[in-house]
Design a protein around this nucleic acid. Structure first.
Length: 497
RNA sequence: GCCCCCAUCGUCUAGGGGACUAGGACGCCAGCCUUUCAAGCUGGAAACCGGAGUUCGAAUCUCCGUGGGGGCACCA
């Protein structure tokens, strides 16, 4: 069987991280089995359609590295791929269902329906949603409504008795009592289809082999199965993908969930938020593929190609899940370490520039190797590199410049020597600077180790608790500024107590 | 309320009747290393939701609870 799968967003919002995972799984499956991945736009709710949404989706997909073989701008033999452009097709098949006795016209207005829905929900005997009243109109009543030119929607005649089995790849057969399923609207009174009609029609004519969609569709799946049966079309393989829950586990993850989880991690929901937050697409993709699916040999970090080679929809864990954001940070850090100094410097530049730093790529490339291991997200570099771009007086206490093993008189002595050393050392490079400072440190600490001194040095030179390693930082700052800084440090140390 | 789905460490997961003393990862804790912070290395705490049943044997199969989730629109 040819694998033809699709991702079908409605252009109302942005690409949700959960949808992105569903799309990723679907796409991986197509790539694994040399299938076709289709992008279809479900824009039949014209009131909710947002200008630019389609472009936003595409941008997010491109960033993630998900490409599509058929779709709005690439075309394909099964187009058009935008549902509003297929309106006639849906109308034709809706009418066919009416003619064949599988569907009927409903003249109830939206207001009437809303009013009736306010009444308490029925018990076991009643189908949810709609009471099917227009299904049983007498010929006279029907004639009267037609003559009055009433607007109508087309509803499916759901079998009232018996049961319907929905085969699901991840859960096996799911059986529903038909009485539980309402006569859903297929074609709205404005002539556009609902999802319930568009899904069978499009997925049939686009020859979709596997319908991947969220679990929220399970409850209407028996309707879909019956529509396929009425049309006499072959049922696709249904794969209802598990939902992503909010970090608290209360309800699904949405734009409205809390901004931070219990561990203080930022809860990002829209794919487009990830690049600006400093996540790498490889890391996000790796991360998403690892939630609800696992590589199989305890490996957590893998390339998308490696994952595709082993991926199967049937291996997806059907349980709902939360996103372990702290694991994303860890993975992202690993991918940052994989970048070359040049790549990382380039990637860091925009973040530094947005806060107004004047970035020299050359200096950045020099510092980047020392920096990369301590970044989880790209913008983490901004506070760490502050000392390089912001020249401000040192604000430190004496206590911060001394140590148990480097008490006040020794600290004064050591810093004085360091200042003199920095002024005179030739050449001013990594080897000489490090040797000289280690030597000074070893001579002044009580334990004869440079460590305590070098730690105070870092603080004095960068003014920061967290920074790249000392020597690299000193070289990047330049001799003059380091000298000046050490002078300030000395002044603090020499201040009368 | 009714229907449906799901259930292993805090979180993401492996496991699908015996190889389970339940494995890995993140996070957490401790130690080592160390120029702070990281990284790295070593070690540690940490789970089969409960109860029946089937079976010589159940984390794995069945049932009943419980908990969580989803659905009950002329939205998708």
């Amino acid at each position: 069987m040819t694998v033809r799968v699709r991702f079908a967003p409605s252009p109302t919002g942005y690409l949700h991280i959960g949808s992105a995972r569903s799309a990723l799984f679907t796409w991986m499956y197509a790539r694994r089995f040399d299938g076709v991945f289709i992008l279809r736009i479900e824009d039949t709710d014209t009131k909710r359609t947002r200008e630019g949404a389609i472009e936003d989706f595409k941008r997010s997909f491109r960033w993630l590295g998900i490409d599509w073989d058929e779709g709005p701008d690439v075309g394909g033999p099964y187009g058009p791929y935008i549902q509003t452009e297929r309106a006639e097709l849906y109308q034709k098949w809706a009418n066919w269902l009416v003619e064949q006795g599988y569907a009927y016209r409903c003249y109830c207005t939206a207001e009437e329906l809303a009013e009736r829905r306010k009444a308490p929900k029925g018990g076991k005997e009643t189908a949810s949603g709609y009471d099917r009243r227009c299904r049983f109109l007498t010929p006279a009543e029907k004639k009267e409504r037609e003559e009055n030119g009433l607007d109508f929607a087309i509803r499916f005649k759901m079998p009232i008795e018996g049961s319907t089995t929905v085969p699901d790849l991840l859960r096996g057969d799911i059986v529903f009592e038909n009485s539980q399923v309402s006569d859903y609207v297929l074609l709205k009174s404005n002539g556009l289809p609902t999802y319930h009609l568009a899904h069978p029609v499009d997925d049939h004519f686009m020859e979709i082999s596997h319908v991947t969609r969220g679990v929220e569709w399970i409850s209407t799946a028996p309707l879909h199965v019956n529509i396929f049966k009425a049309f006499g079309w072959q049922l696709p393989i249904y794969v209802h993908l598990p939902l992503i829950l909010s970090p608290s586990g209360k309800g699904k993850l949405s734009k409205r969930t809390q901004a931070f989880d219990d561990a203080g991690h930022q809860v990002l929901v829209r794919v487009e938020e990830f690049p600006e937050a400093g996540y790498l697409p490889q890391a996000l993709v790796n991360f998403l593929a690892n939630v609800g699916w696992s590589f199989g040999d305890d490996r957590e970090k893998f390339t998308i190609e490696e994952a595709i080679a082993r991926f199967d929809l049937a291996d997806i864990n059907p349980a709902e899940t939360r996103l372990p954001y702290e694991k994303l940070d860890w993975l992202n850090g690993l991918y940052i370490q994989d970048m070359s100094p040049e790549e990382l410097a380039q990637a860091l530049k925009p973040y530094l520039e947005t806060v107004g730093y004047e970035v020299s790529l050359e200096k950045l490339v020099f510092l980047t190797p020392a920096l990369s291991v301590r970044l989880k997200r790209l913008p983490d570099a901004v506070p760490m590199l502050r000392f390089l771009y912001v020249d401000e007086p040192l604000k430190l206490e004496v206590a911060e410049l001394t140590d148990k093993k480097l008490q006040l008189p020794a600290a004064r002595q050591a810093f004085a020597e360091a200042k003199a050393f920095v002024t005179s050392v030739e050449p001013y490079d990594l080897d000489h600077v490090s040797q000289g400072l280690v030597d000074i440190g070893e001579r002044h600490t009580t334990n004869g180790k440079a460590g305590p001194f070098l730690g105070r040095m870092r603080l004095a030179v960068t003014g920061q608790k967290v920074s790249p390693p000392l020597y690299e930082s000193m070289l990047a700052m330049g001799r003059d500024r380091v000298q000046r800084r050490l002078g300030e440090a000395l002044a603090i140390l020499n201040k009368p107590e």
